[in-house]
Design a protein around this nucleic acid. Structure first.
Lengths: 348, 348
DNA sequence: TTGTAGGCGTTATCAA
DNA sequence: TTGATAACGCCTACAA
C-alpha cells in the first residue's frame, strides 16, 4: 500500500540494455522499431507490470485525452442519461471524462471551469447552472484554446458549439395537442426565466395559444414552479381560482407535473376529464402513474452521444471551424392524462 | 480557438524580472516569499490570465488530486446518487472525479482500471460488474500503490476498504414484515448469484423463512429476474402455478417489482389483498404507483459521502492501515403493496 | 534500427 | 528572501 516507485520505461530499458527512447517507441507501436525488440519490450513491460504515466505523456505531448463535463446535478435523470451517452462514445475513442456538478451555483460552476482548464482537458461540455450570471468563465475556456460545447441550458449570447432541444417547438406541439383535445383554459408552470430553455418553452406555449386564437392570460402563467412541491402549490392556487384552468402544462419537469397530479387527486378533480396534465422530460415514472402522464421525451442518452460525436467528428481539425448548433427534436409522448376524448374515440 | 501557448510561470517571471521558482512559491501560498513579491506575482498572474498546468504539477509532486470511479451504469439511480454524494465531498477537498462505466462488462472494467492507474489517481472507487470474473485487476490497483475502495457489489475474497449495505439484514426484515402481514407463500426474485449482494439478499430471505418456521421452497425462488421484463415473466410463471405464491419479494430492484405489479394488474390479482409485493432500492416511482410499493432504501447519496470520507479521514495516513468495512443499514419503507392488514387495522 | 539530448511546466533542494 | 539547478516520466528531432 506504500508509495513505492512504479516501473518506468527506464527500468525496462536498463533490464534490456536498451535506451529509454527505444522502449518508448516499442510501446507506442506506430514507430520504427525492430520486431524483435518490440516483442522483447512488450514482454518485459508485462513482466514488470509496467503502466504508462499519462501525466508525463500528456505533459510532453501537450494535450490530454480527457473531456470535462459540468452539469447542475449528476443524479438527475436527464443529466445522468446525457453523461451515460457521452461516456459511451468517449470511451470508444480512448478519452476519459472528468465530471463536476455545479449544484446550480454559479460560483461552483466557475471554480469547476478553472479546475478543468488547469487539467488541460481537450474539451469542456457544460449545461449552465440556474443562477447563471455571465459568460466570462465560458469565454475564458475558449481563450485558453480549449474546445467548448454547451448543451441544453446554453448562454444565448455566446457563440459556441451547442446541442439543444427544440424546446419551443416541443412546447407548441404539447399545447396544440391539449387544444385539440378540447381543453379551453390552459395554464403554464414556468421555470426560472434566466434559463433560456424555460423561456423557449414559455414562448412555445404562447405561440400555440396565439395560433389557435386563444387569449394569453397572465394569471394562468405561474412563475418558478419547477419542483414537485412548487408545482403542487401552484396547482392549489390555480384550481382555487374563480375560473380555474382545465389543463396544466408543467413545462419545467415531470416532477412538477407529478405535483399537479397529486393535488388534483386530493382535491377530487378528475384527470383527464376535468383537468389535463402534460409534463416535460419523459421520466420513467410518467408511464406508471394513474393516469399515466403525457410528456415530452428529450432523447437524453442520444443527446450525449451527439455531443461527443460533434467533438470527435467536427471539432478535431486544426482549422478554425464555425460553431455549429445541433437542434434535437424532442418527441411528444401522449398518454392518458391528456386524453379527454379517449372514451369518445374508442366508441364507434 | 487555436492551440496557442498558455502563459506559464516563466512568462510571469520574465515580466517581473524574477526567477520561476519565486513565482512558483508565490503562487503556492504556503512558502516563504515576501509579501510584496507575492502580491506582485498574483497581480501579474491575473493580468496574464495564468492557469496552472496540473499535469506538470502532479507529475512533479508524484500524485494527482483525482479519484477514479467505476460503476456498471452511470445513469442508474443508485449509482448516480452515490456519485453525486462522492462528488459533493471530493469537491470540498479539491479533488476531481474521473468516471467510468463498465456497462456490466468485465473487459471494460479491466480497461477502465488500467486507464485510471495510468492517470495516477489517488484512489479507485469501484462497484464491480455483473460478469465479474476474478479480482486480479483489483489486486493490481493495490500493487501500484493506489488506494482502493469497493462499494455495494464487492469481491468477497479481496480484503480492501469496503462500504456495503447490510443486504442480508434488510432482506430478512422485508420478508419478516411480509410474514407478519399474514402472507404464507412468499416467492423470491433473485439476481445473478455471482454478485455477492444478491446472494446476501437470498440468504436473508431464507433466514427469515427459517426463523418463522416456514418451509423454503425451491420452486418459489426464481433465478435471474432482475429487470422489469424478467420480473414480469417470472411473475406470470409464479401466478400460474397450481399453488401460486401470495407474496413476491423482488430482491433485485424496484424495476423488477414494477414488472410484478404490472402482471398482477393484467391478471386481475388484487394487490395487496391477494398478492403482496416488496421491491428493493426505493426508486422515486415506488411512491406513486397504485398501490405504492414497499421497498428498501439504501441511503445512496449518503453512501457516496461515507465512501469519500473514508478516503479522506482514514486512508490518508502514511502508515499501513487495516482495511475497514463500513456497513450501512438500509431501511425498510413500508407502503401499500404489502399492507394486507391495513383495513383491519384502521377499523377500531 | 537505435542512441543522444532536450524539453513539456512545475516544484524541491540547495546555495547565495 | 531569492536564484540556480535538477528532476518528475515521457516523447521526439536529430545524429549515429
Amino acid at each position: 500500500m506504500k508509495n513505492q516507485k512504479r516501473t518506468t520505461i527506464y527500468d525496462i530499458a536498463k533490464k534490456l540494455n536498451l535506451n529509454a527512447s527505444s522502449v518508448s517507441r516499442a510501446l507506442s507501436n506506430n514507430n520504427n522499431v525492430s520486431a524483435a525488440t518490440r516483442e522483447l519490450v512488450l514482454k518485459t513491460a508485462a513482466e514488470l507490470n509496467y503502466k504508462q504515466n499519462s501525466l508525463a505523456s500528456n505533459l510532453r505531448r501537450g494535450h490530454n485525452k480527457t473531456i470535462g463535463v459540468i452539469v447542475p446535478h449528476i443524479n438527475q435523470n436527464f443529466f445522468a442519461d446525457v453523461i451515460a451517452g457521452l461516456e459511451e462514445v468517449t470511451y470508444q475513442q480512448g478519452y476519459n471524462l472528468i465530471i463536476c456538478q455545479s449544484n446550480e451555483s454559479y460560483t461552483r460552476e466557475v471554480e469547476s471551469v478553472n479546475t478543468l482548464i488547469n487539467q488541460h482537458v481537450s474539451c469542456i461540455i457544460i449545461s449552465v447552472s440556474a443562477d447563471f450570471e455571465d459568460d466570462s468563465h465560458l469565454r475564458n475556456i475558449l481563450a485558453q484554446g480549449i474546445q467548448l460545447i454547451q448543451f441544453d441550458r446554453v448562454a444565448d449570447n455566446l457563440e459556441t458549439f451547442k446541442v439543444v432541444n427544440d424546446n419551443e417547438r416541443a412546447s407548441m406541439e404539447a399545447v396544440s395537442h391539449l387544444i385539440t383535445q378540447g381543453y379551453q383554459r390552459i395554464a403554464l408552470l414556468e421555470g426560472p426565466q434566466n434559463l433560456n430553455i424555460f423561456k423557449q418553452r414559455k414562448d412555445g406555449y404562447i405561440a400555440a395559444l396565439k395560433k389557435h386564437n386563444f387569449e394569453v392570460l397572465p394569471e394562468l402563467m405561474i412563475e418558478n414552479a419547477w419542483t414537485k412541491e412548487l408545482g403542487a402549490i401552484a396547482t392549489r392556487k390555480l384550481l382555487n381560482m374563480p375560473m380555474p384552468p382545465d389543463a396544466i402544462f408543467a413545462s419545467t419537469s415531470d416532477f412538477s407535473a407529478l405535483g399537479v397530479l397529486e393535488v388534483a387527486h386530493k382535491m377530487g378533480v378528475m384527470v383527464p376529464e376535468k383537468l389535463g396534465i402534460c409534463g416535460y422530460s419523459n421520466e420513467a415514472f410518467t408511464e406508471i402513474t394513474t393516469p399515466s402522464i403525457t410528456t415530452i421525451d428529450q432523447h437524453s442518452v442520444d443527446m450525449g452521444k451527439t455531443i461527443a460525436n460533434l467533438f470527435f467528428q467536427e471539432m478535431g481539425s486544426e482549422k478554425e471551424v464555425r460553431p455549429k448548433i445541433v437542434n434535437i427534436q424532442p418527441k411528444l409522448i401522449v398518454r392518458s392524462s391528456t386524453l379527454k376524448n379517449k372514451l369518445g374515440r374508442s366508441v364507434r
